[in-house]
Amino acid sequence: MEKVKVMVVDDSRISRMMVSSMLAKTNFEVCAMAENSAEAVALYAKTKPDVVTMDMNLPDADGIECTRRIHAIDPKAKIVMISAMKDAKLIMQGRMAGIGSFLQKPVSTNELIDTLMIMCNENVGAVAVYRESYVTTFAKVLQQSLMSLFGIQSEIEIAQNEDSVLKVDGVAAVIGIVGEPKGRVALYMDSDTMYNLSKAMLGMDPQDDLSADEAEAAIEEAGNIITGRAVSRVNDVFKDKEMRITPPGTVIGSDIILSNPELISFNVKAKTSYGDVHMNVGFARGV
């Protein structure tokens, strides 16, 4: 997949390093770093970045002036301001100069990536948008919820699901997503993991008896809680979007194939001491 080029403009070396390290494992690539306005204009012309992060305080001109100079050579330049101050006057002046978005230092990785994603929406494919703007949030919520619901640590892996087929042996809670975008989440695992997790969720000891019905209900509720939390977090970031979830449906058995060729979906795997917990997050094609 083609990388999205970012130019970082900041007079502080530490700030430049922080932004580039946040973007290190993403689909963004820092193509240039400038420490003053003159350098920023020269490097912009040379490297043609897709998006620019702009500090307010630069030694030779402020970020707003620098934005004006970049816009003079490329009126379509996409610029996000990252500064310690963020007040109404600055935002007004910045908007007039052509700054598309404003972030306040310290910036969280999520906030930065989501903002850059939104700004470059037309430049990147739907896969990257879904992955960076939604799936990473779902994965983070899964990890946090495994801790809060079951008290377990987990290691998370995210991969795009290329063949659109999931094999389920055990239990899968399927939760639909309505609104924009539409999709569905499947939280699934084998029976052993289901019993381990549901006993932990209910505060039982591993040797205690738990019926299959109750264990399945616990996983269903976990799927409902995790998806609900993830969706509200995404809704908080994208103020213009409102996703909601449908009640869970659960499938139980062996050799079940969950197939959704019409979805762009991602496999999130959480490795835990109780077994692997899988979450597949899929969205309808087309953002």
Binding site: V251, G253, L258, F283
Partner: peptide, 20 residues
């Protein structure tokens, strides 16, 4: 009502729970 995307499942004799 708003509807979600469909989830297609294939297999024999597995159970489907949609209601308590």
């Amino acid at each position: 009502v708003d509807i979600s995307t469909p989830s297609l499942t294939v297999g024999s004799d597995f159970q489907i729970k949609i209601s308590n």
